[in-house]
C-alpha cells in the first residue's frame, strides 16, 4: 500500500492520474450522446482516424498529439459534410474516412525511419508517455466543455427527437458539428491513456452502464460521468499494481461494471 502511495508521489504518475480522471469524465459525458444517438461507430472511426494524424506527426518529427488533433477534427468535419450533403449514410461516410485515415497512417509510418516503439505507445496507450502538455490539453478541453454545459439541453433534445428540435428552431446541424469536433478532440486527448484501439470504449461503456441503471437522461449523464472517472482512476491504479497497460485495464474494469449492471438491474 505504501508502495502505491509512493508511486503517486512520482510526477509522471500524478500527470497520468489527473489526465485519466479528466479524460474518463469527458469521454463518458460525450458518451451519453454517442450512445443515445447510436454513434458508437463514429467513436471507433474517429479514434482510428487519430492514427493517421499520429503517424503523420511521427513522420514529421513533431509532437504527434498536435498533428492528430487537427487531423482528427478535419476527419470529423469531413464525415459531417458528406453525411449532410448527399445520400450517403453516416456509417458509410465513417467507413470511408476511417479507411482513408488508416491507409494514410500506414503510408506515413512506412516512410518514417524508426517508428515501431513510438507507434505502439499510441496504439495501446502508455501512461509513461503522458506529458505536461497533454495534461494542459485535457484541462483545456475540460474547460471548454464546462463552458458549453448549457449545450446539454439542446444536444439532449436533438438526440431525443431531431425534427422536433428543428421545429423548435434549435440549430441542429450546427450543434451536431460542434459535438463532432468535441468528440474528436476528446478522443485525441484520451489516446495516451486508452490507446487508439480502445478509446471508443471510453465513450460507450460508462454511458451504456448508466443507461441500464437510470430512467432519466439527466441521471444517466451524471452516473456516466461518475463511472467514467471512477473506472479511469481505479483502472490506472490496477494497471500500476499488476503492471499491465492502462487502457486495457480501465476498459476491462468498465466492462465488469457493465456486466454487473446488466445482470443485476431489475
Amino acid at each position: 500500500m505504501s508502495e502505491l502511495l509512493d508511486a503517486f508521489q512520482l510526477a509522471f504518475m500524478q500527470r497520468a492520474m489527473v489526465a485519466s480522471i479528466v479524460v474518463g469524465a469527458l469521454a463518458s459525458y460525450f458518451g451519453v450522446f454517442v450512445v443515445q444517438r447510436r454513434l458508437s461507430f463514429l467513436g471507433v472511426g474517429l479514434s482510428h482516424a487519430a492514427f493517421g494524424g499520429v503517424a503523420l506527426g511521427l513522420l514529421l518529427q513533431v509532437d504527434p498529439m498536435w498533428v492528430a488533433l487537427p487531423f482528427t477534427v478535419v476527419v470529423a468535419l469531413g464525415i459531417n459534410v458528406v453525411t449532410h450533403r448527399g445520400d450517403i449514410a453516416g456509417d458509410t461516410a465513417i467507413g470511408i474516412f476511417f479507411a482513408v485515415a488508416i491507409a494514410l497512417g500506414v503510408v506515413f509510418l512506412a516512410l518514417t525511419p524508426r517508428y515501431t516503439a513510438d507507434a505502439f505507445a499510441y496504439l495501446f496507450g502508455s501512461i509513461l508517455a503522458v506529458k505536461t502538455s497533454d495534461v494542459w490539453l485535457v484541462g483545456g478541453i475540460a474547460a471548454i466543455t464546462l463552458l458549453l454545459l448549457p449545450m446539454w439541453g439542446r444536444w439532449a433534445y436533438a438526440s431525443f427527437d431531431r425534427d422536433l428540435a428543428r421545429a423548435g428552431r434549435v440549430p441542429v446541424q450546427r450543434d451536431d458539428l460542434l459535438l463532432s469536433v468535441l468528440l474528436a478532440v476528446t478522443i485525441v486527448a484520451s489516446v495516451k491513456i486508452a490507446g487508439i484501439i480502445l478509446v471508443a470504449a471510453f465513450l460507450v461503456i460508462p454511458a451504456a452502464t448508466a443507461r441500464l441503471l437510470t430512467s432519466r437522461f439527466r441521471s444517466m449523464t451524471i452516473l456516466s460521468v461518475s463511472i467514467g472517472s471512477f473506472t479511469a482512476a481505479g483502472g490506472l491504479v490496477l494497471s500500476y499494481v499488476f503492471d499491465i497497460p492502462s487502457g486495457a485495464t480501465i476498459v476491462l474494469f468498465q466492462a465488469v461494471l457493465f456486466f454487473l449492471a446488466f445482470v443485476f438491474h431489475r
Partner: peptide, 13 residues
C-alpha cells in the same frame, strides 16, 4: 408532428 422521429429508448418521463 405526423411521424415521430423520437428515440423511443431515450430515458425520460
Amino acid at each position: 408532428p405526423q411521424i415521430k422521429t423520437l428515440d423511443r429508448s431515450f430515458p425520460a418521463q
